[in-house]
């Protein structure tokens, strides 16, 4: 990939000379977002991941960033950055909102309102463009930040695995904090089956090992409403798991019954888990379809194109930063 800014000569930031790679820094809490980033050099793209979370030492983060001298910075959760922190940074900065926001024309859920309140802390002046994970929250995001496009969080290439024959019995995995809603689904089933459950902090080699050790991935929303599209959805599909999930909104092209098993309530969930244990191979083709769909979100496919488009967009339309 070559930096296209040179084509127009109107790029607002330094771009690498033609034929040299773009340096891309991913900034965010490693716990959640390392699994969404590029981890190795690609043709035309040199990545790094900088662990940074709200309240952490800004000076260390800036020093690391400066030494890397990125052309593009991707910031997961724009609200974690202090106002004005990137005022002197000669690089394109794209934020990525990762939490669902209130939907235009729908009643506001307290959780969504809370997410919006956190997003209010984001300084629009830190960003050239912002990617919204949730298209239904576009209006809310665009009122505050330079919203640019919507897409789900991509999946680190290291988490992709071929669909293997399921173990006998299969191993099911849930990654997420227990809530009353989730325990209503999981609790009765855990009496019978050993569903592996991690609440927090599963990352790096631990995450890869946990994914490799499972055949079934479970996605349950934090509450019955609002619906969402948690990033674990794509992690499980990429790992070749049979995904059992509550309805997804947005769906990002995933089709219930084809790419994953959709469950309407706790009884339905229990039925599907029982089925999957009784006949582990019955849904093999669903796993293959789901794994196939996940390819659309492979980090090494997504990020180079997004970065290229970002630079072209900035060259064409400039920035308010």
């Amino acid at each position: 990939m070559t930096a296209p800014g040179a084509l127009t000569g109107r790029a607002p930031y330094s771009v690498p000379p033609t034929g040299t790679p773009v340096r891309v820094a991913f900034v965010g809490q490693r716990t959640y977002f390392e699994a969404c980033s590029v981890h190795r050099e690609l043709p035309g793209l040199v990545p790094t991941f900088i662990d940074f979370r709200g309240g952490a030492n800004v000076g260390e983060m800036l020093a690391t960033l400066t030494s890397f001298a990125p052309h593009v910075v991707v910031v997961f959760r724009p609200e974690i950055l202090p106002a004005g922190i990137f005022a002197d940074l000669d690089a394109a900065v794209v934020g990525f909102t990762t939490e669902p926001l209130p939907r235009a024309g729908e009643p506001a859920h307290p959780l969504l309102v809370s997410n919006l309140a956190e997003l209010d802390a984001a300084d629009a002046g830190n960003f050239d463009r912002v990617i919204c994970f949730d298209p239904y929250g576009w209006d809310a995001a665009a009122e505050r930040l330079p919203a640019w496009r919507c897409m789900p969080l991509p999946v680190d290439d290291r988490l992709f695995a071929p669909v293997r024959p399921a173990r006998q019995p299969p191993r099911a995995l849930f990654i997420g904090f227990p809530t009353e809603h989730r325990q209503r689904y999981l609790g009765p089933v855990q009496e019978e089956f050993d569903i592996v459950h991690y609440a927090h902090g599963l990352l790096g080699e631990d995450l890869r090992a946990a994914m490799a050790g499972a055949d079934i991935g479970i996605n349950l929303h934090g509450a019955r409403w609002p619906l969402s599209f948690e990033n674990r959805v794509l992690l499980h599909l990429a790992a070749g798991h049979l995904l059992i999930s509550e309805p997804l909104s947005p769906s990002f092209g995933l089709e219930p019954g084809l790419d994953f098993l959709e469950v309407a309530d706790a009884d339905d969930f229990s039925l599907r888990v029982h089925e999957a244990h009784a006949e582990p191979e019955a849904h093999h083709q669903v796993r293959v379809r789901g794994r196939h769909k996940a390819e659309q979100f492979r980090a090494s496919s997504v990020w180079p194109r997004v970065v290229r488009d970002l630079l072209e967009d900035l060259a064409a339309f400039g920035t308010a930063r």
Binding site: T31, R53, I195, H197, Y198, A199, H200, G201, L202, G213
Partner: peptide
């Protein structure tokens, strides 16, 4: 958890996973 990425395993680890 916020500062240090503490791993929180809730349930279901078999002996091999627990060892790891």
């Amino acid at each position: 958890k916020h500062r240090f990425d503490c791993l929180h395993a809730v349930f279901g680890l078999d002996a091999d996973e627990l060892e790891r």
